[in-house]
Write a protein that binds this DNA or RNA. Structure first.
Length: 316
DNA sequence: AGCATTCCTCACAA
DNA sequence: ATTGTGAGGAATG
């Protein structure tokens, strides 16, 4: 890329809106495609050229696949923040060794090589998953990006936006939330945002609590049940011992782990998952979810492709 | 035995 | 592709 000048903090900027190069990441450390399309985040979109764009905090990043890894570019970002987000310092090999070996998980492990659980912001995870009930992934992605564009703030004066604060969503006009097709989710999202405005220590307090305790607190929020609570624990609070069960995971567990017992109650499935997969069960859940959707004919990464109009709007 | 309470499951709406 | 609610039935004390 060619340099055209210096931005206010003295870094070189590139043609095409100020994207700055931040080096590269090797394939051995993470498979970005797997990690961004396994259902844990809605903050990333795939461009036609195969690269991924997304926002972390108040910076935008672009990950451009190369044969043995990917190249990083950013708008107002820094390399370390991205590496922290990608959770590269966790010992994933060790975690894999702690997981049980059963045929389904073995298949999932080989399909999901390099998949990593990201370190996402808990509020962003919570708000995003409150948008998710009975919506397909592409639509959840579009809705959360609209939340950003309407109630977030612009990054570098461009078309990428921070995730809106609880305050911003708490004071949003219900009518505008409904206009982005949130439906019944609007009321829960806003009510939960208001809880967090009233209790700013909510997430800091959860960090010191046990997973079970934190789960109970999360389930007290309007619109948050066990599934969403588990997603926030796993994706936003790094609790690898939580195991979210949605309709896909329920089908998978029934078909692959209890093929002979059609009438096993959902509650027993959840208990089984916790004990069978153990303290890193959440990682097993992501591997299984990613693999099962693939084998069920979904293409997780294709579901996150941006439309040509969206790409144009972002300047690509 | 009858009764109150709790727990679970299912169906349905948003 | 989730939660909240209420009806109805089984288990508990």
């Amino acid at each position: 890329m060619s340099k055209i000048g210096l931005n206010p903090i003295g870094k070189t900027v590139a043609r095409g809106g100020g994207w700055e190069s931040l080096g590269r990441i090797s394939r051995a450390r993470i498979n970005c495609e797997h990690s961004l399309s396994c259902g844990q985040t809605f903050s990333w979109g795939k461009l036609r050229d195969g690269s991924w764009v997304g926002v972390i905090g108040s910076s935008a990043y672009r990950l451009i696949p190369e044969p043995d890894g990917c190249r990083i570019e950013s708008l107002q970002g820094n390399r370390q923040a991205l590496l922290d987000y990608l959770s590269l310092s966790r010992n994933w090999e060790q975690i894999l060794q702690e997981l049980p070996s059963d045929p389904a998980l073995a298949a999932a492990r080989s399909a999901g090589q390099g998949l990593r659980i990201l370190n996402q912001d808990p509020w962003e995870s919570l708000a995003s998953f409150l948008c998710s009930p009975v919506k397909p992934i592409p639509e959840i992605r579009r809705i959360t990006w609209k939340l950003r564009a309407i109630w977030g703030s612009s990054i570098a004066g461009g078309r990428f936006f921070t995730f809106p604060t609880p305050e911003a969503l708490a004071s949003a006009k219900q009518e505008r939330l409904l206009a982005i097709r949130l439906g019944f989710r609007a009321r829960f999202l806003q009510a939960t945002a208001r809880h967090l405005v009233d209790d700013p220590d909510f997430f800091p307090n959860l960090r010191t609590q046990s997973t079970r305790e934190a789960r109970t607190r999360l389930c007290e929020l309007p619109g948050v049940g066990e599934k969403i609570a588990d997603c926030v624990l796993l994706f936003g609070l790094g609790r690898l011992d939580s195991f979210p069960i949605d309709v896909w995971m329920e089908r998978l567990l029934r078909r692959l782990y209890f093929p002979e017992r059609a009438r096993i109650p959902t509650r027993e499935l959840a208990e089984f998952a916790l004990t069978h997969f153990g303290p890193y069960g959440g990682y097993a859940q992501q591997l299984l979810y990613f693999w099962y959707r693939q084998t069920a004919g979904r293409s997780p990464s294709r579901e996150l492709e941006l439309s040509p109009e969206e790409e144009a709007e972002l300047g690509f």
